[in-house]
Design a protein around this nucleic acid. Structure first.
Length: 471
DNA sequence: TTTTGAGTTGTTCGA
DNA sequence: GTCGAACAACTCAAA
């Protein structure tokens, strides 16, 4: 006699708490939790190296929480399910919805095919505060500007649901040939660069909860201003956990609503609103990962000098604030939000390289790489995205450094070779007199690069090029 | 249909 | 050093 089984398909919801699909699946007699690495359908969108590393540890953590009873597979999900249905009596498959275009397309097909062989599929919202189709303008079309999207659209819509409790019972299947070996997914890098990078993170559901608690106890009190200073501990760093679903936005939202509503809290909540906005943009414009949202940018004269790109990627541009950011990314799999804007503006406007190069690099190196956030944010900084701001907003990495890293803690942490420079020259070493450089043991062009581009001239050039677009 | 107010995050220059 | 203006013009969203 075969046991009746419901599958919970884990995707971007690697948690047990507040997991709507898992909660409902748990009401079946037996639950088989499954994770499938699907590089096949992902194609060009398959996870980058940093994401895969995070996933490895996140799955290990999840598998532990499930007493090792997580079924792991590598391949085409429909084939995995077909194989499982041949061996076991699968009653239903549960999952929480994903919103990347390729996943939507795939999931629709899977749902149809499973339906045709008599298996029920139930999907839930486990990743967004509001479904994209729930937040629309009065005329039924999607918002394209953040502020009305969030203030009018989201905040006037029904409040986000409260978090689900843990399933009261969860009878995990003891299937005989359970393949729970995460190693076979080949997620870890060939060259072992990972040990150092994951040091600053506690990956998994418990780590996500700690991260939230720490932020609400220490970071939120000065969030509105403090979030601009990369050397301060004022941002939540919840983004990778949110991407993989080790925590849900509803858990965060609900924790925020349970506290005093200050300006700081309001600002933090609006950042969750930005996440919703990015997902809405991607949902209604599925090609924003490669297509300018504003088509007038299609004729923009991008630079094609890829040696500049390499210097940017390696944190060797000779402009400390930019290099510090790029090295933080490489060394930690993360970059502070303020610095993301600085390095992004620099790539697109000063080096005038296509935003797509930045999008791809971030996709490969960020732990929190997320298709919606990444594409929407790169288009935003490039000026071709959903942005009401003027084209002449070009960040000056020197000014930004002086303003937001005034003591140079951030720069010195990531660029030790110039750490002996006095603050006055730290942000623009090329302006330092020779004797100051000598005292700091710096030989520009040898121990630290000369700037690969003239900030002032490249700004003027970019303004010219952008002006031509609006003609 | 027309009108109105407003739009994440900046920089530079000159008083 | 500090402050306000200029940098342009457009489109969005709602009344």
């Amino acid at each position: 006699m075969k046991k009746k089984i419901a599958i919970h398909w884990f995707r971007q919801d690697l948690r047990l708490q507040d997991n709507p699909a898992l909660y409902h699946a748990s009401q079946h007699q037996n639950v088989l939790p499954v994770y499938i690495l699907d590089d096949l359908n992902a194609g060009e969108n398959q996870m980058g190296a940093a994401s895969k590393l995070w996933l490895f540890h996140s799955l290990s953590s999840l598998s532990n929480s499930l007493n090792g009873k997580l079924f792991i597979a590598n391949g085409n999900p429909i084939e995995v399910f077909q194989n499982l249905t041949q061996e076991y009596e699968i009653e239903a498959i549960y999952w929480n919805r994903c919103y990347e275009p390729w996943r939507i397309k795939r999931d629709i097909q899977i749902k149809e095919q499973l339906f045709s062989i008599g298996i029920e599929v139930k999907s839930f919202n486990g990743s967004l505060l509001w479904e994209p189709w729930q937040v629309q303008k009065k005329d039924g079309t999607p918002y394209t500007v953040f502020t009305p999207f969030y203030r009018k659209g989201c905040l006037n819509a029904p409040a986000p649901r409260l978090p689900y409790n843990l399933p009261e019972k969860l009878n995990l299947c003891d299937i005989s040939n359970l393949d729970a070996n995460i190693k076979k997914l080949d997620l870890l890098p060939q060259i072992p660069w990972d040990a150092e990078v994951i040091k600053s993170w506690e990956i998994g559901e418990a780590g996500a909860q700690k991260c939230l608690t720490t932020f609400l106890e220490h970071g939120i009190e000065n969030y509105k201003e403090g979030r601009n200073f990369p050397a301060q501990q004022s941002v939540s760093r919840l983004s990778p956990y949110l991407h993989f679903g080790e925590i849900s936005p509803n858990q965060i939202w609900s924790a925020c609503m349970g506290r005093e509503m200050t300006d700081h809290m309001d600002h933090f909540c609006s950042e969750l609103g930005w996440r919703e906005f990015s997902h809405s943009l991607l949902y209604f414009n599925p090609d924003i990962t490669y297509q300018n949202l504003q088509s007038k940018f299609d004729t923009f004269p991008w630079n094609s000098d890829l040696t500049l790109l390499t210097a940017w990627q390696k944190g060797q541009t000779g402009i400390p604030m930019v290099d510090a950011g790029m090295r933080e990314l490489w060394q930690t799999g993360y970059m502070h939000n303020r610095v993301r804007m600085i390095v992004g503006s620099f790539l697109v406007k000063n080096l005038r390289l296509h935003w797509k190069h930045g999008e791809r690099w971030f996709w490969d190196t960020l732990f929190d790489a997320d298709m919606a956030n990444n594409a929407a944010s790169w288009q935003w900084i490039a000026g071709c995205g959903a942005d009401a701001a003027p084209y002449f907003r070009i960040f000056n990495p020197v000014t930004q450094g002086q303003k937001f890293d005034p003591k140079g803690h951030y720069i010195r942490r990531f660029i030790p070779e110039i750490s002996a420079l006095p603050d006055k020259y730290l942000f623009a070493p090329w302006e330092a007199p020779e004797h100051i450089l000598q005292e700091a043991h710096i030989n520009l062009g040898k121990t630290y690069p000369l700037p690969i581009v003239d900030l002032k001239q490249s700004r003027i050039n970019a303004l010219e090029a952008f002006k031509l677009l609006s003609l």
